[in-house]
Design a protein around this nucleic acid. Structure first.
Length: 419
RNA sequence: GUGGCCGUAGCUCAGUUCGGUUAGAGCACCUGGUUGUGGUCCAGGGGGUCGGGGGUUCAAAUCCCCUCGGUCACCCCA
């Protein structure tokens, strides 16, 4: 292939129509659902002081090796956001809105890592964050909203994985139990997992390396280490999901990559596509994060859904198709182009979606362009029509054929036909 | 950061094993067949420094080395 001079940087790509339109439609579906549930949009900056993201946990890969950071001209240490929860909670801490504060967002995130299927250096997420209430029903609400979103898209093969990490103290006790378990048979662990064990024992549960499988399967369960409070909260979340008719699988080994999670954690897995990255969304509770950002202690719960991966799942299930056209009418003018110029403008002013051909090409070439545009109707102006003050209106989709109408009635006719 | 696979027209690929006439196909695009009418069909046409660099050879898309890029997987995550 002849190499272009420039190409999109590693791990990034251009999204051309119609995929771009599909993404916009997906975001619109999401916005419709969450705004209708009382969530308001927040648009945080795409970069923050790097310390904001250090609150995600110094042991996480996101912070340790995937940060897209740089010094700006003022010497500030800046990082492109790897996710948006930290930014939203920072904004909460900065503006102190009254609680409950229910926010939603969409937009790109950045992580410096090697790209593969479903994993990019710039990727879009949509998500919600709800701060204030400690109510387990709020955990259920955000899960239900994500569930509704998948339903609206037409996705059917999504599994909700649910776990509880307990409170901070439960979590610490559990980490010790895990450390003990894995340390008892270090030789059986892969080298990578031994390294992980030293940094963050929870992460070992995530290992996909076959040699670790037995030891991971035999590991103690988080659910046996929950305090009474945490266990009660988890019970209430499950009861709420049950009453809402949302199916889930308890996943005691579901560990999420960010250290701020406590109590409820969840993940949405697409069963329909076989990539290694089959998690299309995830979230959980982060009751300590607001305090870490300098706000009064405020519980929070939320999720982020990967737009790219969700669309891949839609592809795998053959749902949520891309649009096939952007215009309804196409203007063909073989009299030099002045008619196309004025007619197209009139149609657009009347609210019609209209396009036209260029360069005064032949009737055949213009009709081909009309066909390709996907427009349902073509308005044709040739010499004969120009002289008689008429235009030809041709059905490009069905078999309604072609009729000749007065030019002055073209807008009314089109509006009626496209109704 | 580590490993596997792959780079030939805008796209999907053949040709590379056993180097050898002007490097091919389908799709897409343009023109014509149709002196006004697309989607089917027919004919013709434009478009490629065979990712880049170096080497071996009379001769390299084809063999060797380096490099860049893509992709998939690990790590980890959306």
């Amino acid at each position: 292939m002849a190499d272009p001079i420039f190409r999109a940087p590693k791990g990034t790509h251009d999204i051309l129509w119609p995929e771009s339109a599909r993404r916009r439609a997906l975001t619109a579906v999401f916005a419709d659902i969450v705004e209708g549930a009382g969530y308001t949009e927040v648009v945080p900056p795409m970069f923050e002081h790097v310390e904001v993201f250090h609150r995600l946990g110094d042991a996480t890969d996101v912070v340790r090796k995937e940060m897209y950071d740089f010094l700006d001209k003022g010497g500030r240490h800046i990082a492109l956001r790897p996710e948006q929860t930290a930014s939203i909670v920072r904004a909460f801490s900065e503006h102190r809105p009254t609680v409950p504060w229910k926010a939603w967002y969409e937009g790109p995130n950045f992580r410096y890592e090697r790209a593969q299927k479903g994993r990019f250096r710039q990727f879009d997420q949509v998500g919600v964050e709800a701060l204030g209430p400690e109510d387990a029903h709020l955990d259920a609400e955000v899960i239900a909203l994500a569930w509704l979103f998948y339903e609206r898209l037409g996705l059917r093969r999504v599994t909700l994985m649910l776990n509880s990490l307990g409170g901070p103290l439960d979590r610490a006790r559990y980490v010790e139990a895990l450390r003990g378990h894995f340390s008892s048979d270090l030789d059986a662990l892969s080298a990578d997992s031994r390294t992980t064990l030293a940094v963050n024992p929870l992460r070992v549960l995530d290992s996909r390396r076959p040699e670790d499988a037995d030891l991971v399967a035999a590991a103690p369960s988080m659910l046996d280490h929950l305090s009474d409070d945490a266990a009660a909260h988890f019970e209430r979340v499950q009861a709420a999901l049950d009453s809402l008719g949302i199916p889930y699988m308890i996943a005691p080994r579901l560990v999420r990559g960010l250290d701020y999670y406590v109590r409820t954690t969840f993940e949405f897995v697409a069963e329909a596509f076989d990539a290694a990255q089959n998690a299309i969304g995830g979230g959980g509770r982060y009751d300590g994060l607001a305090e870490e950002m300098g706000a009064p202690a405020t519980p929070g719960v939320g999720f982020a859904l990967g737009v790219d991966r969700t669309l891949m799942a839609c592809d795998a299930e053959g749902v949520f198709d891309a649009p096939t056209t952007t215009v309804d009418v196409f203007v063909v003018d073989t009299t030099g182009g002045d008619q196309a110029l004025s007619l197209t403008d009139e149609l657009r002013r009347a609210g019609l979606r209209a396009d036209r051909a260029w360069d005064a090409r032949s009737m055949k070439a213009q009709m081909r362009a009309a066909d390709r545009s996907g427009a349902a109707l073509a308005v044709i102006v040739g010499e004969a029509e120009l002289e008689s003050g008429m235009v030809a209106l041709r059905d490009m989709r069905g078999d309604a054929g072609q009729e000749t109408i007065h030019r002055s009635s073209v807008i009314d006719t089109l509006l009626a036909r496209l109704q």
